[in-house]
Design a protein around this nucleic acid. Sequence first.
DNA 1: ACTAGCACTCCGGACTTGTGAGTGCTAACA
DNA 2: TGTTAGCACTCACAAGTCCGGAGTGCTAGT
Lengths: 339, 339
Amino acid sequence: MLEDRRLAVLRAIVEDYVSTHEPVGSKALVERHHLGVSPATIRNDMAALEDEGYIAQPHTSAGRVPTDRGYRLFVDRLSGVKPLSSPERRAISEFLDSSVDLDDVMVRTVRLLAQITKQVALVQYPSLSRSNVRHIELIALSTTRLIMVLITDSGRVEQRTIECLGPITEVALGDVRARLLVAVSGQPFSSIPEILSAFSGQFPAEMQPLVTIIQATLLEAVTERIDERVVLGGTAHLARYGEAFPLSIQPVLEALEEQVVLLRLLGEASTNNMVTVRIGHENPVEGMESTSVVTARYGIANSAAASLGVIGPTHMDYAGNIAAVQAVAQYVGRILDEQ
Amino acid sequence: MLEDRRLAVLRAIVEDYVSTHEPVGSKALVERHHLGVSPATIRNDMAALEDEGYIAQPHTSAGRVPTDRGYRLFVDRLSGVKPLSSPERRAISEFLDSSVDLDDVMVRTVRLLAQITKQVALVQYPSLSRSNVRHIELIALSTTRLIMVLITDSGRVEQRTIECLGPITEVALGDVRARLLVAVSGQPFSSIPEILSAFSGQFPAEMQPLVTIIQATLLEAVTERIDERVVLGGTAHLARYGEAFPLSIQPVLEALEEQVVLLRLLGEASTNNMVTVRIGHENPVEGMESTSVVTARYGIANSAAASLGVIGPTHMDYAGNIAAVQAVAQYVGRILDEQ
DNA sequence: ACTAGCACTCCGGACTTGTGAGTGCTAACA
DNA sequence: TGTTAGCACTCACAAGTCCGGAGTGCTAGT
């Protein structure tokens, strides 16, 4: 009962602060939310909440502001998930129709997400490591150079140029290509290293240099290249907070330029299919202490999976953003499945 | 003589303003630059320069600030080209060595440019329309789907998925592939439409659907896809100007999210090989009135060409940026030639 | 357990003032 | 005629002062 009201107060504080961006006081609170008690009572609750570390005052005689811990409690226990509005659903389905290409899907998704959340959006390309090989092609460009094209069942196309020491014969290349195709086609990336380990044995000695370098390149493509690409959009939304907040955007912009950092932000998402929220200092990245990250994994029928999400100030609309991220993740998974 | 000094004054004003970012007054001017005259004389010159529209004062009794027109005169007649420092040259050549991939070159270039100019950098992918076809590949993914991979001599790889109505036979596809390869291999993109116009005639009627759709896809790839990709880097540098300037970064960030806008900014570069500078209002893009754009074309031995450049506030270090853009453009051209 | 009242704190806006950088003008000078 | 010195004038900006109001914590009363 008493506990209940305290939580209600916390929720009210978070909601008000998110919408007004100003410290919220006891009086304003009772006026805006019809809690049936007087400001004085609220003040007692606030004092208790402050003791427990859920809220704080920027300075004496100012209203209260939620702390990271307060937001945490809010998203864990208090925030419902706002259903998306119908224009939003419409936008998603419109975007759904006209995708032609994996790149296209990624770009459209990131735009969509940025647009409906009004935040910075991130979308990771489907992970190669959980993909299967759909096709592999070796194409001679000159007598010493060839290009390897790798196509996954998630629609991704990887290419690598290979420089050979000796000249390549048309016949040898065709031979390698044919056998390689048989060996790896349809196989998951994770099993490629094993397959390759016994591969070169079937070729005569004079072809070994060629086979070896091709093999090495392929191996590199499926393993070392676990560093994935992330597309980014909606950075302009950062400027909205510009001066108004401790969130000085410089470090954030810098962080967003590093692929590695983006991956860290997206990475280590929840094990299950739910949305993950990292609030303020919970973020593993320096310079992002006053931002929150909302992420979700999107899966392509278990064959490949990656993450997407949004980044915004800690005082974001968690309910709305969680709903948006979740919905978009579902849609994207579905689209990629269809392809 | 008198004219000469006035120009010297303008140059001094621009240089001081660029380094301090504060309106510069007559007294400070004579102290910092050893013009052999008194402040009063300078004031007369300044008044003249103001009448001609080269400088302006933000408010009475403030120093003078160059106008767009002032900058224009400065870059056209007054600014020497700063040679790059040796660490800069070293950075460029280090970057030069370790490029493996077209994508890699683009990413590295944009980073490099952003780093040495401390501005936002843009690099356009080599234009397809001036490229030659190095190889074309058709790969069946299923009985009704195939993927077309197009490799240009600038190292770019384009892929397209093609959905056929009827089932594809291995033989038919091989036939089309072989003839297509012969027909277009080594040809410039610009001549592909002509080549294709007579292409389908050589196939029997039952193969027409297949040939037609492949042909259409290829045609689309070489023509409609003149919309080029642009990579972007160094946006964090924008934040440096953050509040300090009329350059509110929101519209700029927004503009930078649109590929089309980026192309407009890069586009219409100078006819010759020199660097182009667009100052403030000279920019064709709304919201970029207080930014300048420095661009140059980089060519790959006449076969393909595109632009790169930097974007910064009008009070940028023109001499330095022009030198950097020019140097980087040369290096990139050279690297892509080698590949 | 809640509320009313009260004294206290302190941020932030408004207002004032003073200072200094900068200007334009005029008159003297080479 | 071009340059300089001197001077009165303007005005942004910083510092200082003041005051109101929002908000708090505490205590006593319901």
